[in-house]
Amino acid sequence: MPHTLTRGALPLAAATTLLGGLLALGSPGRADAAVPDTIPLKITNNSGRSEPVYVYDLGTQLSSGRQGWADADGVFHAWPAGGNPPTPAPDAAIPGPAAGQSKTIRIPKFSGRIYFSYGRKLDFRLTTGGLVQPAVQNPSDPNRDILFNWSEYTLNDAGLWLNSTQVDMFSAPYAVGVQRADGGTTTTGHLKSGGYSGFFAALRAQPGGWGNLVQTRSDGTVLRALSPLYGVETGALPANVMDDYVNRVWQKYTTSTLTVTPFADQPNTKYYGRVSGNVMNFTNSAGTVVTSFQKPDASSVFGCHKLLDAPNDTVRGPISRTLCAGFNRSTLLVNPSQPDATADGFYRDAVTNQYARAVHAQMADGKAYAFAFDDVGHQESLVHDGSPRQAYLTLDPLS
């Protein structure tokens, strides 16, 4: 199911994106659903780190549409009015478990994020429109030197959708899980042994500026790697980092056809792409042009936005999602029928999303949300159940 690109990270001085803007990962709900108003979330601290952990449950209350936070009992609190410049948000921190211990809180019917931080509380602010999220690509962001991460979730009448995400950054590792109605448990997000350090080593060894995505603290602590989208936006990655591959794709489909079958359950719904000049036009089976794309730049590719915008419709959005996945995984030259069914050929070209390649290579099950539409072809790190008994968040070692 569609994954929302979480573009909430903005400089505090220019923040306009709200946490409440996250779309629900699930369906609108069922009248006959038996999902309670809150479910338990068991947080286990296997990080091996001695600092205190702080947990936050922030999002949009689905019953009211209001933005706010939930306390450890799952009780909702609406944000007060913010200001311009942004004003400090109320302290929504929940003390987390100490190293080697677990703590269970309750999470309500929300669409939002579970943040966790080590050593220091996060600094959240409120504008007149709502919550400002951390923007660690901004050198002046007050959260830049804090080791933290987050998971995204939606709990509604249709069940729980809970993922681990690296769309914005790769940082403190964690896994998510759900105990299903049948009593079994599904988990995803664990790294391989040595995967955390292995990811950073792979990124730093990659020529072309990819190592510039890594951020460290003055004491030498490795904090995170920014996504390549933020790398391009901040100048850490060159703006032309994907040009060679995009140019080759444009050349190929000037004389051949790219076939997109965006829905696995609708194999007869196909669209056909051909390039004319700077534009790739897609036609339906009747030969009618249904949408067109300008040649994308690296920002459009890495962010799956701008020239690869994906509206929530039944034509352009699904085609754009497929194109975005093909560009990031560098499969468009080797397979003219998209999307790809397996991951065997992903990230093989010399010009590819090296960040996403390194993330997936270090995941124990190979699954991750390394870019916005990494769920194309079911490569995402997502757990779901229609009648969840319990959710899990496991903080893993930074090794």
Rank of each mutant, 00 (worst) to 15 (best):
302 F>L: 10
120 R>K: 14
77 H>R: 08
299 S>I: 10
17 T>H: 13
339 P>W: 09
120 R>V: 01
218 S>M: 07
340 D>E: 15
256 S>D: 10
176 V>G: 04
236 A>G: 02
246 V>D: 13
256 S>Q: 14
187 T>C: 01
301 V>G: 08
297 D>E: 06
44 T>R: 12
103 K>H: 10
5 L>M: 11
262 P>T: 05
115 Y>P: 06
288 T>Q: 14
323 L>K: 12
169 M>S: 13
179 Q>A: 12
76 F>R: 02
1 M>F: 00
170 F>M: 15
1 M>R: 03
221 T>Y: 02
174 Y>V: 07
363 M>I: 06
164 S>L: 09
150 W>G: 02
290 V>F: 11
140 S>Y: 09
126 L>C: 08
163 N>I: 05
240 N>I: 07
363 M>E: 15
291 T>C: 14
345 G>Y: 00
238 P>V: 01
186 T>V: 14
283 T>L: 07
27 S>R: 12
362 Q>H: 01
149 N>H: 15
212 N>W: 03
2 P>D: 13
282 F>A: 08
393 L>H: 04
9 A>T: 06
224 R>N: 07
99 A>M: 02
323 L>F: 14
60 T>N: 02
101 Q>I: 06
230 Y>G: 06
339 P>K: 11
301 V>H: 08
297 D>N: 15
112 G>I: 03
226 L>T: 06
259 T>H: 11
164 S>M: 10
267 P>E: 13
11 P>Y: 10
264 A>R: 12
374 D>H: 00
253 Y>G: 09
397 P>G: 04
272 Y>E: 02
388 P>C: 10
134 P>I: 01
93 A>S: 15
74 G>W: 04
356 A>C: 09
8 G>I: 05
15 A>H: 01
396 D>T: 10
4 T>H: 12
305 H>S: 15
230 Y>C: 03
139 P>K: 11
247 N>D: 15
325 A>H: 11
148 F>R: 01
108 P>W: 09
371 F>A: 03
205 A>D: 09
76 F>P: 03
52 P>W: 00
331 T>D: 11
265 D>V: 04
246 V>C: 07
135 A>F: 08
23 L>D: 13
357 R>F: 08
183 G>K: 05
34 A>W: 04
267 P>W: 14
296 P>F: 07
295 K>Y: 05
102 S>K: 02
337 S>C: 03
156 N>S: 13
281 N>L: 03
117 S>K: 01
119 G>N: 05
353 N>I: 02
31 A>W: 09
191 L>W: 12
18 L>W: 06
76 F>Q: 04
165 T>G: 10
283 T>D: 09
59 G>Q: 07
347 Y>R: 03
373 F>A: 13
265 D>Y: 12
303 G>M: 05
243 D>A: 15
36 P>M: 10
254 T>P: 03
231 G>V: 06
20 G>N: 08
20 G>P: 08
340 D>V: 07
374 D>E: 11
12 L>A: 12
307 L>E: 14
179 Q>C: 05
379 Q>V: 05
36 P>D: 02
375 D>W: 04
394 T>I: 15
18 L>R: 15
235 G>C: 04
10 L>I: 03
67 Q>D: 08
61 Q>P: 01
7 R>G: 14
259 T>E: 14
205 A>N: 13
324 C>M: 04
128 T>E: 14
291 T>Q: 01
296 P>Q: 08
18 L>Y: 03
